[in-house]
Design a protein around this nucleic acid. Structure first.
Lengths: 108, 108
DNA sequence: CTGTATACGTAGGCTGGCTACATGTAGCCA
DNA sequence: TGGCTACATGTAGCCAGCCTACGTATACAG
């Protein structure tokens, strides 16, 4: 998959993977790999800044856990983040509908 | 729709709208509006350079028509462009499948 | 003869994900 | 006890690709 087509959908992916659970950054990357059967392998330089940005936007809340000496910043959705996720899902529906309509559409 | 989410899918749209017919740039923009029920309104500064690029890549062939004094550069798909369109469609399938799977997926 | 729709095109900017790098811990193996 | 690998977080700067803003020109309505 063209790496670049993610543009504008990264936030949706991050919010979706945090829906209903708390994860730290590294685990988020692994969860995305798992859910996509290996198709998504986001670099840390993509994910970490995005998480910070989503937190600043109020969609995520983070706290530091220390597990066996390891510091891990775990993220979870805020209520505002839940709404954002719903909005992103709706927008995804619209997006695929529009582009898919053109790609598959008969000559109109 | 976020204007920006088009990233990486513009070529597919342009190739698709030219599938089976010849159109000139301005008409391409109108055809995309039509097929998307107004959701897509691409600026000329996006479309014209993209058409030139696709022509340089060998996916489109153009010729000048002069209709009632108006010069219009009409584009059509080359054989190579047909293949590119098929590839873009396949990639679109994969893309929506991957992202859709994560967005809709149960906690995995 | 002015305004609007049609028609093509370029220069430069901006945004957002990526590359490359910097830092540090835990656990295994020899 | 030294090194290697996996885990874990983070920043600076680059670059691709679409968009904004502009410039040009013709046809036709009023």
């Amino acid at each position: 998959m063209k790496a670049d087509s993610l543009r504008g959908h990264l936030d949706a992916l991050l919010l979706a993977v945090l829906d209903g659970r708390k994860l730290h950054g590294y685990a988020i990357i692994e969860a995305l790999q798992l859910r996509s059967d290996g198709a998504l392998d986001l670099p840390t330089g993509t994910v970490y800044p995005a998480l910070r940005r989503l937190e600043r936007a109020g969609f995520l809340a983070s706290e530091w856990d220390v597990v066996s000496g390891r510091k891990r910043r775990t993220y979870k959705l805020t209520r505002s983040g839940q709404k954002a996720l719903a909005a992103e899902r709706a927008e995804w529906q619209e997006f695929t509908s529009v582009i898919g309509g053109v790609l598959g559409g008969s000559t109109a």
